[in-house]
Amino acid sequence: MTRPKKATVALIYDFDGTLSPGNMQEYGFIQATGLDANTFWEKNTKMKEAQDASEILCYMKLMISEASHKGLLLTKNSLKDYGKNVELFKGVKEWFALINKYGSDNGIVIEHYINSSGLKEIIEGTPIAKEFKHIYACSFFYSPEGKAEWPAVAVDFTAKTQFLFMINKGIRYVKDNKKVNEFKPDIERPIPFRHMIYFGDGETDVPCMKLIKQQGGRSIAVYNPSKRAKKAAAEKLIAENRVNFVCPADYSEGKEIYKVVTTIIDKIKSDYEFKKLLLAHEKKGEKL
């Protein structure tokens, strides 16, 4: 397999707290059940502790239970409708075109991915869903009538690392998870880890951040600038050497995230071109 003429860079995002200031269930679904956000998440915590269960599986069960109790339709379409109301951080809507152009202008292919413990169906309803090559997130099984019945995919912090390997190896679907552990030479992997940039804000992102950093990629801890506790949590990650950068969640042109990401892209391009140059000269030596 020959090396591609252009480097591909994968920008991989958590969603809640990274692209959006809140949990996606808080933008319509929880209100529709008649609960407030604090009550919903308190119920989730109590269920998790009482059953010694996964927090992710608990929130998915709680969504089904509360919807059933209130007579709400919980379908792909209803969840996508909730996604229309999800709030995004400043500059997020414009971010993708901005970075895609920067990549194109510099001979770099940019791909965007979601790696989230939130719900795929809600994310698919947001105005930025079309920007992602693939969305790796939780999802439900649906009845023939389209009603959510059971968790199909539950994404906790360990599952998130699996999706990084799927991106690395060019595996798109969760059903192909056996391929994750199959051997594939590095040169045949479409996106090396060193060409990945990971954006996250919380504990579920720590294994991904650390893995990407250890493998030569870059991790960015993002925080809500209006919340002091979020900033402190992000700064703790860099103090513990788990991330490369810490940035406020403003994705506008010229802001800190933009400067960090464009500089990383410049570095990836430079390293890629240098490696191509070395390989070309190695081939000259092989001819002697």
Rank of each mutant, 00 (worst) to 15 (best):
T33D: 14
T18C: 13
T45Y: 07
T39I: 08
E42W: 02
A32T: 01
N23E: 04
E26N: 12
Y27F: 15
K43H: 09
I30F: 08
D16C: 14
F29W: 08
K48S: 08
T18Q: 09
F29D: 05
P21C: 09
G28L: 10
I30H: 12
D16G: 02
W41H: 14
Y27H: 12
K48P: 01
I12E: 08
A37D: 13
Q25A: 15
Q31D: 15
G22W: 01
K46A: 12
G17P: 14
T33E: 12
T39K: 13
L19P: 11
A32D: 14
G34F: 02
G34W: 01
G28D: 10
F40Q: 04
A37S: 15
N38S: 15
Q25T: 05
M47H: 10
T39N: 11
G17S: 11
G34L: 04
K46L: 11
A37T: 06
I30N: 12
L35T: 01
P21R: 08
T39D: 13
P21I: 06
I30P: 13
I12K: 08
T39L: 05
F15W: 08
L35V: 02
E26G: 06
E26H: 05
F29G: 06
L19D: 10
D36I: 07
Q31K: 14
N38L: 14
I12M: 14
I12D: 10
Y27L: 01
S20E: 04
Q25C: 02
I30K: 07
T18V: 09
Q31A: 13
N38H: 12
A32N: 12
T18M: 09
Q31N: 13
M24S: 14
Q31H: 06
I12Q: 08
I30L: 09
N38G: 04
E26K: 03
N23A: 04
T18W: 04
I30A: 12
T33C: 15
S20K: 02
W41T: 01
S20G: 07
W41E: 07
M24Q: 14
